[in-house]
Amino acid sequence: MRKKDLSLTGNERTLDPDDLIVTKTDLSGKIRYGNRTFYKFAGYGPSECIGVQHNIIRHPEMPRTVFKLLWDTLKAGNEIFAYVNNRSRNGDHYWVLAHVTPSWSETGEIIGYHSNRRAPNRAVIREHIDPLYATLMKIESSSASPKDALAAGEKHVHDLLASKGMSFNELMFALGV
């Protein structure tokens, strides 16, 4: 089943406080490993995910700007914390707090990425993340092109961070991850 064939059910699945979703990807974002919890929430089996782009679980209401920020941060060799809304194979969705880090070779080269995701703080999503992501989606959808959409979304995030004197990770922690 191709991702674009999926519809949204509107049903939210929630992680228990002890749940931990783990995936590892190569440099291009293709899945190399997923734990049982990942497959349970994604609704796919290992044979359907290994070698496939991690965006197989991308929810269409997630701003592209957030993923651009994530990839730019990782490629610079830094870790990132971000709230992410994912989509299960059946169209359900589930929110996570993702901690994504580069994986390093013995010679100091980035060779892939490692992501741990856990149950998010629901109040933070409701009070801060939902409004921010809705604004980013509106900015992105009203732009003339995908390139303009990312530029406008990035400007909004950078202006927000500058106004608070914080990095993105600092903002996530200030909100109460």
Score class of each variant (00 low, 15 high):
Phe67Gln: 11
His93Met: 12
Gly43Asn: 06
Glu79Gly: 14
Ile50Arg: 14
Gly45Glu: 09
Ile57Arg: 00
His93Phe: 15
Asn78Gly: 00
Asp92Asn: 13
Ile56Gln: 00
His93Lys: 14
Ala76Met: 04
Asn55His: 13
Cys49Ser: 12
Arg87Ile: 13
Pro46Asn: 07
Asp92Ile: 07
Gly51His: 10
Asn85Phe: 04
Gly51Arg: 15
Asp92Val: 08
Tyr94Ile: 10
Ala82Asn: 09
Trp95Arg: 03
Ile57Phe: 00
Ile57Ala: 02
Thr73Asn: 05
Ile57Glu: 01
Asn90Cys: 10
Asp92Met: 04
Pro46Ile: 08
Glu61Tyr: 12
Ser47Trp: 01
Gly43Cys: 05
Asn85Thr: 05
His93Val: 11
Arg58Asn: 02
Gly77Val: 06
Ser47Phe: 01
Ile56Pro: 00
Phe38Trp: 04
Leu74Val: 07
Glu61Asp: 15
Asn55Ser: 13
Tyr83Glu: 04
His59Tyr: 09
His93Cys: 14
Met62Leu: 08
Gly45Val: 05
Gly45Ser: 08
Ile50Trp: 15
Tyr44Asn: 06
Leu70Glu: 09
Pro63His: 07
Asp72Cys: 10
Trp71Asn: 12
Met62Val: 09
Ala82Lys: 09
Glu79Trp: 11
Ala82Glu: 12
Leu74Ala: 10
Ile56Val: 03
Val84His: 02
Leu74Gln: 08
Val52Trp: 03
Glu48Gln: 11
His59Ser: 08
Cys49Tyr: 03
Gly77Asp: 06
Leu69Arg: 10
Cys49Arg: 03
Glu48Pro: 01
Arg64Ser: 14
Lys68Ile: 08
Tyr44Trp: 07
Ile57Met: 01
Phe67Ala: 08
Gly43Lys: 06
Glu48Trp: 02
Gly45Thr: 10
Trp71Leu: 10
Glu61Ile: 09
Asn86Glu: 12
Phe81Tyr: 14
Trp71Glu: 12
Trp95Gln: 02
Ala82Val: 15
Met62Ser: 07
Gly77Arg: 09
Arg87Leu: 11
Ile56His: 00
Pro63Glu: 02
Phe81His: 12
Arg64His: 14
Phe81Val: 04
Ser47Met: 01
Leu74Pro: 03
Ala82Leu: 14
Ser47Tyr: 00
Ile80Val: 13
Pro60Trp: 04
His93Ser: 15
Trp71Ser: 10
Asn86Trp: 08
Gly45Ala: 05
Ile50Thr: 15
Tyr83Ala: 04
Phe38Thr: 02
Asp72Gly: 09
Lys75Gly: 12
Tyr94Met: 10
Tyr39Ser: 00
Met62Phe: 06
Arg64Lys: 15
Ala76Leu: 05
Phe67Gly: 08
Leu74Arg: 08
